[in-house]
């Protein structure tokens, strides 16, 4: 069976490196992009099984913008085919001050499936990745 594909969209190359090494060592195939635009392009090109997305990149809301675009309800959306790919959002401490969001209470605000807080514990990351991919593959059987 093919290795599950993960796309990381995060502007910190060191963070991307640590996540990539960890994921690849655990039998995932990993692609990465360092900004929203490249990220969206790679979603279309690689059709990943999971997207790991940083909330804040160049601008405070770049990550949010990417998630809104991917999950856009617009029937004409260029990302319609990709709107079911699970998204794991990476949040930093500073975001907590201004945005309280959790998948349970704020689904209206932020269309992502799960969160992982920085500093990222590699074990936590692996567990969440595993669960999201499992959940998503079960849904689409």
């Amino acid at each position: 069976m093919d290795k599950p594909k993960i796309l990381i969209i995060d502007d910190d190359p060191d963070l991307v490196e640590s996540m990539q090494i960890t994921l690849e060592a655990n039998d995932y195939e990993v692609e990465s992009a360092y900004n929203g635009t490249d990220g969206l392009r790679l979603v279309k090109e690689t059709n990943p099984d999971l997207i790991i997305l940083d909330v804040m990149m160049d601008s405070i809301t770049e990550g949010l913008q990417v998630s809104y675009q991917l999950r856009s309800q617009d029937p004409q959306s260029p990302y319609k085919a990709y709107s079911n790919i699970p998204i794991l959002m990476v949040t930093g401490v500073s975001q907590k001050m201004h945005m309280k969001f959790s998948p349970e209470t704020d689904e209206d605000y932020l269309p992502v499936d799960e969160f992982v807080e920085k500093p990222i514990q590699l074990d936590t990351l692996l567990e969440k990745v595993k669960n999201l991919i499992k959940k998503s593959s079960e849904l689409w059987r």
């Binding site: 963070l15 960890t22 401490v93 500093p119 590699l122």
Partner: peptide, 18 residues
């Protein structure tokens, strides 16, 4: 400052963890 101080530290932690 949270971002500028902590983000690099977290990045370093990540690499060392690996």
């Amino acid at each position: 400052m949270t971002h500028e101080l902590k983000a690099p530290l977290m990045a370093v932690q990540g690499l060392l963890d690996v």
